[in-house]
Simulated scan of single mutants.
Amino acid sequence: MNEEQFWLETGIDPHATAAALWMAYSTLGDEAVAFASARIMAGLAAVNRLKERQA
């Protein structure tokens, strides 16, 4: 599997994700980690790939 096939199968746009992460780390400083985590979780949820937490 090549990189293009990987991203097509995951349903996640790597360019939009990279842009959001770059923006977070270049402008938010200490708040970047929380923003990036939320963005990643939202992306996973949008394609029904968010795993439930186990207690």
Rank of each mutant, 00 (worst) to 15 (best):
A16Q: 13
T27R: 09
L28N: 01
L8S: 14
W7Q: 08
S37N: 09
F6N: 10
E4P: 00
W7K: 06
N48L: 01
I40T: 11
A24H: 02
G11Y: 08
A38H: 08
A19I: 04
A46R: 06
I40C: 07
G11F: 04
N2W: 08
F6V: 15
T27D: 04
G43I: 06
R39S: 08
G11P: 01
N2I: 13
A20R: 06
N48Y: 02
E52Q: 11
N2Q: 12
F35T: 04
G29Y: 00
A24R: 03
P14Q: 09
M1W: 14
Y25H: 07
L21T: 11
S37D: 12
I40F: 11
T10R: 14
A45Y: 03
N2V: 11
A38F: 05
K51M: 10
E9V: 08
V47D: 04
A18Y: 11
A19F: 07
A42E: 14
T17P: 00
A55H: 10
H15E: 14
T27W: 05
L44G: 01
A24I: 06
R49P: 01
L21M: 14
S26N: 10
T27L: 06
W7S: 09
A19N: 06
A46P: 00
V33K: 03
R53A: 12
E52A: 10
Q54N: 10
E31F: 05
A19M: 10
A55F: 07
Y25N: 03
E31Q: 09
T10Y: 03
A18R: 15
T27G: 00
W7G: 09
T10C: 10
T27V: 04
S37H: 07
L21D: 04
D13H: 05
P14W: 08
N2G: 15
R49G: 05
E4I: 14
Q54D: 10
A55G: 11
A45G: 02
R39I: 05
A46S: 13
E4H: 12
P14G: 08
L50D: 05
F6D: 11
A36C: 06
E9R: 14
D13K: 03
E31C: 00
M41V: 06
I12F: 01
A42I: 02
A55T: 09
F6H: 14
S26D: 12
R39V: 11
A32H: 01
P14E: 10
M1V: 15
A34K: 08
S26Q: 12
E4N: 12
F35V: 06
D13L: 04
L8H: 13
G11E: 08
R49Q: 15
A32M: 01
R39M: 02
Q5W: 12
F35L: 00
K51F: 05
A32I: 01
I40H: 08
Q5I: 14
S37R: 14
F35P: 00
T17V: 13
A18C: 07
E52N: 06
I12E: 01
L44C: 06
V33R: 03
E3I: 15
T17A: 13
A42K: 11
D30F: 00
V33L: 07
A36W: 01
G43L: 07
A34E: 12
S37P: 00
E9S: 13
L50K: 11
A42Q: 13
